[in-house]
Simulated assay, not measured.
Amino acid sequence: MIQPQLHFTGQIWRPPYEANSQLLQLTSGCTWHKCKFCSLYHGTPFRMSPLSEVEEDLKVIRRWQPRARRVYITGANPFALSYNRLMDTALLLRKYLPHMESFGMFARVTDITPKSVEELRNLHHLKLDSINIGMETAHDPTLDKMDKGYHSADILEQLSKLDEAGIHYNVFYLNGLGGQGNGVASAAATAEVLNRLHPCIINIVSLTIFPESRLHQDVIDGTYQEAPEIERLVEMRTLIERLTIKTNIFGHHISNTIPITGALPYDKAALLSEFDKAISSFPEQELRAYRKNIRHL
């Protein structure tokens, strides 16, 4: 018997802590597609799933996972959709999955901009409880260089709206993004902004450049110099040292040469000690060899 299939197209990514969530496609590709370092959605144009398609998928999910409690909506940044479209989706989730307790998704900082705090509260009321945001850094020169399309002031303003609306959020920090010589400045600027916010998790990923990214050509042209591995460790240490908020650090991504996990402020001393040991004992060439062997994220 042929089983019904869900409408998944393009690359499908989800954070590791969403491993037990039911996945549902709302968009594919990215609305921005300009970040110089990114190759995650290479070759996949942005597409918004029709509500009829979403409803078909929910009927399948209801059949096979009728008691699903957590749904993670896929796409690079489905939160870019209008408030009304997101509300329609939330209502469909409630209709077909009555046992669902929460849902989440990825977002760009700029996806929050057109939505008022009241609208965000309404989405939260319909079980949107968390958003994962590819912040990358709050260092304005690096944000400009990488064509992120926003600045540190936008990060502070938009994530503050999520705090006010009661929606939890996790951010991604891209270690080494500023290039050689800019790591400490990037970490310091990011800590300064995050210390005024309330991220639940700070995911640390280390920049790994693949041929599909525009940044790869900059490396070939000599207009961008990658941050050395020891410098990246110093950058990560600086970020953790300067954070004063209560949050969780997830740095166990394959791209990190030294995987770390901890809760701040409780584990700060242990994390800093771990970095100090790594910085003083690991040869640069050994860490670089590890990065060169990363084939995909």
Rank of each mutant, 00 (worst) to 15 (best):
F275C: 04
D129G: 07
M146D: 01
E157D: 12
A187G: 14
Q180Y: 04
D221Y: 05
L143Y: 08
S206G: 08
H151G: 11
F46E: 02
S52P: 02
G181W: 05
E212M: 07
T27Y: 00
A263F: 03
F210H: 10
A19Q: 08
E119C: 09
K115A: 08
P45W: 02
T27F: 02
E241N: 13
I112P: 00
P199F: 03
V219H: 06
L194T: 01
I131R: 00
I230V: 15
A269L: 08
C38T: 03
G222L: 06
K145C: 07
E231A: 15
A263S: 13
R121F: 05
N132M: 04
I73P: 00
K115V: 11
T257H: 11
N175H: 05
L207D: 00
E101G: 12
L174V: 11
V184E: 07
A187T: 05
A270H: 10
F37Y: 15
F172C: 07
A19F: 09
S39Q: 03
L23K: 05
N122A: 14
I258G: 02
R70K: 11
D144F: 09
P45H: 12
F250E: 04
T9E: 05
L40G: 01
I112T: 01
E101Q: 14
D144N: 09
T31K: 03
L162I: 07
A90V: 10
P141Q: 06
L97P: 01
E118L: 12
G134Q: 00
L91E: 14
M87Y: 09
